[in-house]
Simulated assay, not measured.
Amino acid sequence: MDFVNLDYILDQLIQLCSISSPAGNTQKAMDYLKRQLDDLGISYTSTNKGALIATIPGQEINVHRHIAAHIDTLGAMVKEIKSNGRLKLAKIGGYNWNTVEGALCYIETGAGNRYSGTILNTHSSAHVYEDHAKQERNDDNMELRIDEKVKNQDDVLSLGIDVGDFVSFDARTRVTESGFINSRHLDDKASAAILMGALKHIKENNLLLPYTTNFMFSNNEEIGYGGNASITPETKEYLVVDMGAIGEGQTTDEFCVSICAKDSSGPYHFDLRQKLVQLAQRHKIYYKVDIYPHYGSDASSALRAGFDIVHGLIGPGIDASHGHERTHKDALSNTAELLIHYLLAQ
């Protein structure tokens, strides 16, 4: 595909992954997106919950489309300051502790100070603990080791660290010469970058969309209610751009745009799914249709909230979801192409 600026999408992805934004603490990422939208000359509003909605007026103003990607990520919060100066954590979002064991992380205090650390199991030394490998990785057996001279609770408190402070995981973003993107939080910053690429393409080419379209960057998807509000009454179709799930029994790979037929909330709208499939076929876009068994989206949360909408879900195929994820430039390209063809279609 040569009509969308893939370099721009990649740059947006890298920049977004460098900004910590666990659900509940996403303002820095939203401020970054506001600056990008200002540079493109695209108007936007912020919701009371902190989501960002950019609007492109269309030929038909009485019918709207709603496009959503989420900017919030998995993370944690300080649950307890332990007597040994380490931190017990409470998870934000759904993941297993083994996926962040050994991860570099950051604690952000209420005053805005930032400290680095590492997430470990409490019996982390193989030379000391016989059950090092067998110890269960659960809430009680995981802790954060702070990169400061702290030996007790008072030492930690003196840094300004306290219960309720947010913890984010270092994304460790890396793009290989072969086109693979390795990073945490590709769910869903890859899709947010794709939305930015679509907005840039529309604006720079003065494209007239058939319908007024609202692009939402939601901020609470990982905790279940990111895109379930601030949907205009004129909205008929709601398309989420989120990761395509890869694994045993799935058709999705790291190179396609994945079109979701069903997730844990139930089937997505059949007619919209077929429209997306036909667009992909017509424009020779590499796609796969899949079912995501343990998954929910901003669109499914909007349906639970009672909105009368047609809902769909597409996204780049991403491996090792909610772990250290990987996708390929081709998946970004195929997803961006399908999204733009959808936006231009009646």
Rank of each mutant, 00 (worst) to 15 (best):
residue 32 Y to C: 00
residue 158 S to R: 08
residue 314 I to Q: 15
residue 20 S to R: 10
residue 141 N to D: 01
residue 79 K to M: 09
residue 304 R to K: 15
residue 126 A to F: 13
residue 211 Y to M: 06
residue 331 A to P: 09
residue 55 T to H: 07
residue 77 M to R: 06
residue 186 L to T: 04
residue 175 V to N: 13
residue 123 H to K: 15
residue 112 G to P: 09
residue 334 N to M: 15
residue 275 K to P: 12
residue 207 L to G: 07
residue 36 Q to S: 03
residue 252 T to D: 08
residue 242 D to N: 07
residue 72 D to Q: 01
residue 255 F to Q: 13
residue 122 T to M: 11
residue 187 D to W: 00
residue 251 T to F: 11
residue 42 I to F: 02
residue 169 F to H: 11
residue 294 H to Q: 05
residue 242 D to Y: 05
residue 19 I to D: 04
residue 66 H to E: 13
residue 19 I to A: 03
residue 202 I to D: 10
residue 291 I to L: 07
residue 131 D to W: 07
residue 128 V to K: 03
residue 328 H to E: 12
residue 116 S to F: 00
residue 159 L to T: 08
residue 223 I to S: 01
residue 291 I to R: 14
residue 25 N to P: 02
residue 160 G to N: 11
residue 172 R to M: 10
residue 209 L to D: 01
residue 292 Y to E: 10
residue 331 A to K: 07
residue 27 Q to R: 15
residue 253 D to S: 14
residue 175 V to K: 15
residue 278 Q to T: 08
residue 243 M to N: 06
residue 204 E to R: 12
residue 49 K to H: 04
residue 273 R to T: 13
residue 243 M to C: 12
residue 189 K to W: 02
residue 176 T to V: 03
residue 151 K to S: 11
residue 233 P to R: 06
residue 170 D to G: 13
residue 68 A to F: 00
residue 178 S to Q: 15
residue 97 W to C: 02
residue 89 L to M: 10
residue 97 W to A: 01
residue 216 M to H: 12
residue 310 V to I: 15
residue 307 F to N: 09
residue 6 L to V: 08
residue 78 V to R: 05
residue 259 I to G: 08
residue 187 D to M: 02
residue 3 F to S: 08
residue 334 N to G: 13
residue 78 V to W: 00
residue 8 Y to R: 03
residue 118 T to H: 00
residue 106 Y to K: 11
residue 335 T to P: 15
residue 45 T to C: 02
residue 183 S to Q: 05
residue 92 I to P: 03
residue 214 N to Q: 10
residue 289 V to P: 03
residue 191 S to Q: 05
residue 300 S to F: 12
residue 318 I to D: 06
residue 107 I to W: 06
residue 96 N to V: 12
residue 247 G to M: 03
residue 46 S to K: 09
residue 266 G to E: 09
residue 47 T to C: 09
residue 39 D to R: 11
residue 261 A to I: 11
residue 65 R to L: 10
residue 34 K to L: 11
residue 175 V to C: 10
residue 282 R to N: 12
residue 81 I to P: 13
residue 63 V to A: 13
residue 215 F to C: 07
residue 84 N to A: 10
residue 248 E to C: 11
residue 160 G to W: 12
residue 137 R to E: 13
residue 212 T to E: 12
residue 236 K to A: 12
residue 190 A to M: 08
residue 17 C to F: 05
residue 313 L to T: 07
residue 246 I to M: 15
residue 93 G to V: 04
residue 56 I to H: 07
residue 108 E to K: 12
residue 185 H to V: 10
residue 20 S to G: 14
residue 73 T to M: 04
residue 27 Q to I: 12
residue 142 M to D: 08
residue 251 T to V: 10
residue 183 S to Y: 03
residue 338 L to T: 01
residue 322 H to C: 01
residue 165 D to L: 06
residue 338 L to S: 00
residue 99 T to I: 08
residue 158 S to I: 09
residue 118 T to R: 09
residue 190 A to T: 08
residue 100 V to C: 01
residue 138 N to E: 05
residue 95 Y to L: 04
residue 269 H to M: 02
residue 93 G to I: 04
residue 80 E to Y: 04
